[in-house]
């Protein structure tokens, strides 16, 4: 399984931010939330993409989805608990 990292060494310093921006598909958004930097190592980016088929609504598989979700949610949990 390829790796991803969360670049947030001090979750107890986190503050909600107001963010207005555009997604990669150009869709605008405006919300308050926690900005969580996700780092995909360059040498593993293709490995992640090999596990994903955007035309298949069941892709990526459960194990891959769980890997990404748990990494992000663990970071979110640390940030929220530190509030």
């Amino acid at each position: 399984m390829p790796e991803i990292f969360i670049d947030f060494p001090e979750p107890d310093t986190a503050q909600p931010e107001a963010v207005s921006g555009q997604g990669v598909d150009g869709t605008s958004f405006d919300t308050e939330g926690f900005v969580i930097p996700v780092v995909v190592p360059l040498d593993q980016a293709q490995a992640w993409l090999d596990l994903y088929d955007p035309a298949n609504q069941y892709s990526p598989d459960a194990a891959t989805s769980r890997e990404i979700a748990r990494t992000v949610l663990d970071a979110l949990k640390a940030i929220v608990e530190a509030q």
Binding site: Q15, P16, E17, A18, V19, S20, G21, E32, V35
Partner: peptide
């Protein structure tokens, strides 16, 4: 800077980039 217009809204101070922004709201 921005503010939602109601006294119950927090003021937001941050940075603006082209047509987007990130700010601290408190």
């Amino acid at each position: 800077f921005r503010h939602g217009g109601s006294p119950s809204n927090a003021t937001q101070y941050g940075v603006w980039m082209i047509a987007s922004q990130t700010s601290g709201s408190n």
